[in-house]
Design a protein around this nucleic acid. Structure first.
Length: 211
DNA sequence: TGCCAGGCCCTCTTTAGGGCCTT
């Protein structure tokens, strides 16, 4: 599954009650967009009721209120639908370790497990955009002048911005290194390459690439 | 009462510390 083009995958983003499912935190919103051959297509978005009240900090941070969650379907129902949406696709998120642990925790609650490999747009951006002021999603959107409606910290909006960031990084890699259509596996390796070794790594990818 | 994550990555490192990034 990993040896596929990096321009076909699903970008996802969770809003949650806090930072750690190991501390009892739950998902409250999932947003995702499907990228097929470099084109953003199908979208998935849903609030989900975690079965408890969320803090005023999270209400302020996300704009998602306890009132909004009262009428939302339960996490279990949403995650079952989302599992079907992502089936068969590689996954991408900004700071993927965060979304990965919530995805795994919520899927486990519905008796499902994740087989899909993840890539991280934040780790990739740290390699490709070493001169950026920082590597927060919002900063990178402004840094690269990417499309946005000004909504931040909502799942679908963040997933869409991450999708645009990913496509821009693929485009910039193509221009900078003359490496067209890198694979998902190559991008995973890039994300783990030491910053100072990125240029050499990308050159080797170009030379060793099968034609 | 007081505490509250964790993986990644850099450096004045590796027998460690601290900033970044996500909610």
């Amino acid at each position: 599954m990993t040896d596929t083009p990096a321009d076909t995958l699903i970008v996802l983003d969770f809003e949650t009650t806090g930072l750690s499912p190991d501390q009892g935190d739950r998902a409250i919103e999932i947003g995702a967009v499907k990228i097929e051959n470099g084109v953003i297509g199908a979208r998935f978005q849903s609030l989900m009721n975690p079965g408890r009240r969320i803090s005023s900090f999270i209400e302020g941070y996300t704009g998602i209120s306890n009132r909004m969650l009262q009428d939302a379907p339960p996490c279990e129902q949403v995650m079952a639908e989302f599992a079907a949406f992502i089936d068969g696709y590689n996954l991408l998120a900004h700071n993927a370790s965060f979304d990965q642990k919530f995805l795994d925790a919520e899927l486990e609650r519905v008796g499902a497990s994740r087989r899909h490999p993840f890539c991280c747009s934040m780790l990739t951006a740290r390699r490709i955009y070493q001169d950026a002021p920082n590597h927060q999603l919002g900063t990178l959107v402004r840094y690269k002048n990417l499309p946005t409606d000004g909504t931040y910290h909502r799942a679908l909006a963040d997933a869409e911005m991450t999708a645009h960031l990913w496509l821009r990084m693929l485009s910039d890699i193509e221009q900078r290194y003359q490496l067209a259509a890198p694979s998902f596996a190559q991008m995973q390796k890039l994300a783990k390459t030491a910053k100072k070794s990125v240029d050499g790594f990308m050159l080797r990818q170009r030379i060793s690439r099968p034609h």
